[in-house]
């Protein structure tokens, strides 16, 4: 390792000298947003260690502790910082476990959408002609339908095809596929337009002349040159995917209450809103908004930082 770093600057030095890093440390919004994101991601990742209670271990959940208000209110219990829900589960702990599911679904569906979108974009942009116009027509039609509607339809179809009791177990996968399939168009369009510029450059022609197969040119040589904008789209879409997951779960077609995401938690709490137990809904809601807002701010910053026009 050491002799490599002597020959060329290490990753950390390169990062420290980069424009991206300079722009990052001069943008307070981006710093705060990334700290918040890291805190939430870490809390979700290590939920088992951080959470004061295990809300899904039935042995530790006590129905007598149900519907307790937050610790600072008169009837609150100091061991339940943000209160408890209708089944006596600690709200703070369910939020930690819930954001884990929200983040898993968010990341996985963005990854799926990116893989589909980048593949379609590469093929459409490189091949051109009839295949290109066919793929882009499909993209146009899909883009005119709102993503949430498509995700709902896919979810409904999955419910029809799968047996009823199996649905709860595969709900997370269904959500990932539904959101992933409704978000791929943005990537495809962006990658396609970059590929159309790249494919006429000399390094691509050189590859063609020495007889490289098309897929090697695409994957090894063109792909790395079109990934910049993809990163920006992925960040902004991560926020959108988390919102979409929460919305679907809130509407009752997402993850089941036995392993709730933030959206499911808000849905559960919504039933208790009218009887005054506001904390069951509001705290998961705040967690969701802070997460989405942070990711959105990071996405905005990344878009400006990577955009050469604004330098």
């Amino acid at each position: 390792m050491s002799d490599i770093s002597e020959q060329q600057p290490s990753f950390l030095t390169r990062l420290r000298d980069s424009d991206l890093w300079w722009s990052f440390i001069h943008s307070p919004g981006a710093i705060i947003a990334s700290v918040l994101t890291i805190v939430i991601v870490a809390g979700a990742l290590f939920a088992g260690l951080v959470a004061p209670h295990n809300p899904f271990d039935l042995a530790t959940v006590d129905l007598f502790d149900a519907l307790l208000p937050p610790a600072w209110e008169a009837e609150g219990n100091s061991s339940y910082l943000l209160g408890t829900d209708d089944q006596g589960r600690d709200v703070f702990s369910t939020i930690l476990y819930g954001s884990r599911i929200s983040l898993i679904v968010g990341f996985a569906s963005v990854a799926l959408a990116a893989v589909i979108g980048i593949t379609v974009g590469l093929i459409a942009g490189y091949s051109g002609g009839l295949l290109d116009s066919f793929l882009m027509r499909v993209a146009d039609i899909q883009l005119s339908f709102p993503a949430i509607l498509i995700a709902l339809l896919i979810d409904g179809v999955a419910r029809g095809i799968l047996p009823r009791d199996a649905h709860d177990e595969v709900a997370v996968y269904v959500l990932v596929v539904a959101i992933g399939l409704s978000f791929w168009v943005q990537y495809a369009r962006t990658v396609r337009s970059s590929v159309m510029v790249e494919r006429n450059k000399e390094y691509v022609q050189a590859g063609q002349v020495i007889g490289l197969p098309n897929w090697i040119i695409l994957v090894r040589h063109i792909l790395p040159n079109v990934l910049g904008p993809v990163l920006v789209i992925a960040t902004i879409q991560l926020a959108l995917a988390i919102i979409t997951e929460a919305t679907l779960s809130f509407l009752g077609v997402g993850v089941p209450p036995t392993s709730p995401s933030l959206g499911t938690l808000i849905r559960i709490g919504n039933d208790y809103l009218f009887s005054g137990e506001w904390w069951i809904t509001i705290f998961p809601g705040v967690a969701l908004v802070v997460l989405v807002l942070s990711v959105n701010i990071l996405g905005d910053w990344l878009r400006d930082a990577l955009n050469p026009k604004l330098r």
Partner: peptide, 22 residues
């Protein structure tokens, strides 16, 4: 407007219900 983009629609509805309704 950034907050409006980040606030999920259903949460806006819930907050309004909590404040003006409940």
């Amino acid at each position: 407007s950034l907050m409006g983009v980040s606030l999920p629609t259903f949460l806006i509805g819930i907050l309004l219900i909590l404040f003006f309704g409940v």
